[in-house]
Amino acid sequence: MPRQLTVLPAPDSPDAVLGTVLPAVRAALDGTAPLAVLPSGPAAAAAREVLAPGEPLEDGADLVVVTSGSTGGGRGVLLPASALAASAGVTADRLGGPGAWLLTLPVSAIAGLQVLVRSVLAGTVPTAPAPGEDLAAAVARMPTGRRYTAMVPTQLRRYLHREPEALRAFDAVLVGGAATDPALLARAREAGVAAVTTYGMTETAGGCVYDGVPLGGVRVRVTGDGIVVGGPVLALGYRRDPEGTATAFAGGEFRTRDAGSLGPDGRLTVLGRLDDVVVTGGVNVAPQAVEGALREHPAVADAVVFGRPDDEWGQRVVAAVVPVPGAAPDLAALRPWVAERLGGPSAPRELHLIGSVPTLHTGKPDRRGVAARLARDGGLPAGSRAELAGRGGQGGPS
């Protein structure tokens, strides 16, 4: 008899996470009740449609996770318990052994779910901070022994500014879900934070490359079509999408569509989504690199970068930046700042000021959402403010 998928709403409190979602994850891992957790807010309806809980579930799937939709519509990724367990096992090996986890991420995304999976498999109970609780107070409630957490770069930046001593209490702070600026990573490590960058996605049961080095059993190669990953952490495919599954999964490997390179020592450098690369004047510009350079400007708190059609250059680099309170960055100041660090083609040719960078439910910057909003508003003049605050949620590394 075909198995049916159990779909839980987004938990609205730490009690709901520990009392409802955690037992459901335990049941999913032992194969008794396949599970999916909806994201909060407007994304829930679209996720439920993707999950199709009334339809029979594909063989072998124990957890179904809806992706962020950063390259279009979200997909339901079919994860077997074996892939989740393999990921948790090699993560513990890399970090120095099992430990207690602090949950700072939504459990609708693979990063948050993996905190629960690792806790179940380690025989521990994660600590879920209460709304508005300081990081230090949450850490004080954690068990003794090895302590871990996972967060997106924005969270790391905030905690590093407000509570660096609390971050130092962790044996590892996994940082991912979006590109981590090298300068931010350097500041964290100089402050004594055991920050570990992660690369992976829902299709690889979360992070599978830490600090550029694949986890045990994970195989990585780079082709002209992007980074390709293999190993026991792979998903089975996509919910009700055999064609998409056949395209992305073949020969025991997953084609990520991320650009990257492998160094002589086998260390992976991720350059961003192939679809996000801006080709301006025949030069490929990685938006993530430009965003990192902009965030280092003293008048910029955050930034998102994308391309727009341009009659002269093919595409032009467009920057939407969140100003530091009281500052008013302009294109004349930001262009040379970026050019000095990345070269002239990377310097933005169009600038917008926004209230905050919206994110998808996984924590990735909603680059397409910002571009669509600005286009819908008719292309605001340079230096104008587009209020994009309050859209999206947070996800994170895994």
Score class of each variant (00 low, 15 high):
Val7His: 08
Pro14Ala: 02
Val17Thr: 05
Gly19Thr: 01
Thr20Phe: 04
Val21Pro: 05
Val25Glu: 06
Ala43Pro: 03
Val50Cys: 10
Val50Trp: 06
Leu51Ile: 13
Gly60Trp: 05
Val64Gly: 10
Val66Gly: 02
Thr67Met: 12
Ser70Pro: 01
Gly73Asn: 14
Gly74Cys: 13
Arg75Ser: 14
Gly76Cys: 09
Pro80Asp: 05
Ala83Trp: 04
Ala86Phe: 06
Gly89Lys: 11
Ala92Met: 09
Asp93Asn: 04
Asp93Cys: 07
Arg94Gln: 10
Arg94Phe: 11
Pro98Thr: 02
Leu103Gln: 07
Thr104His: 05
Ile110Met: 12
Ala111Met: 06
Val117Gly: 11
Val120Tyr: 03
Thr124Arg: 13
Val125Cys: 06
Ala128Trp: 13
Pro129Gly: 01
Ala137Val: 01
Arg147Ala: 05
Arg147His: 09
Arg147Ile: 08
Arg147Thr: 07
Arg147Tyr: 08
Gln155Asn: 04
Leu156Ser: 11
Leu156Phe: 14
Arg158Leu: 15
Arg158Trp: 11
Arg162His: 14
Pro164Arg: 08
Leu167Gly: 10
Phe170Gln: 04
Val175Gly: 07
Ala178Arg: 02
Leu184Arg: 06
Leu184Ala: 12
Leu185His: 06
Thr197Tyr: 00
Met201Val: 06
Thr204Pro: 01
Gly212Val: 04
Val213Pro: 03
Leu215Arg: 04
Gly217Val: 06
Val220Thr: 08
Val220Met: 07
Arg221Gln: 12
Gly224Ser: 07
Gly224Asn: 10
Asp225Arg: 12
Ile227Asp: 00
Val233Ala: 13
Asp241Glu: 09
Ala248Gln: 05
Glu253Gly: 00
Arg255Ala: 12
Ala259Val: 04
Ala259Tyr: 02
Arg267Asp: 00
Leu271Trp: 11
Gly272Lys: 07
Arg273Leu: 10
Asn284Ala: 15
Pro287Leu: 08
Gln288Gly: 09
Glu291Gln: 14
Ala293Asp: 12
Glu296Tyr: 00
Pro298Gln: 13
Asp302Lys: 09
Asp302Gly: 14
Gly307Pro: 08
Asp310Glu: 08
Glu312Arg: 15
Val317Arg: 07
Gly326Ile: 03
Ala328Trp: 12
Pro329Asn: 14
Asp330Thr: 11
Leu334Lys: 15
Trp337Leu: 08
Ala339Asp: 13
Ala347Lys: 00
Gly363Ile: 11
Arg367Cys: 01
Arg367Phe: 01
Val370Thr: 11
Ala371Lys: 08
Ala372Thr: 08
Ala375Phe: 02
Pro381Asn: 12
Ala382Lys: 00
Arg385Ile: 14
Gln394Tyr: 11
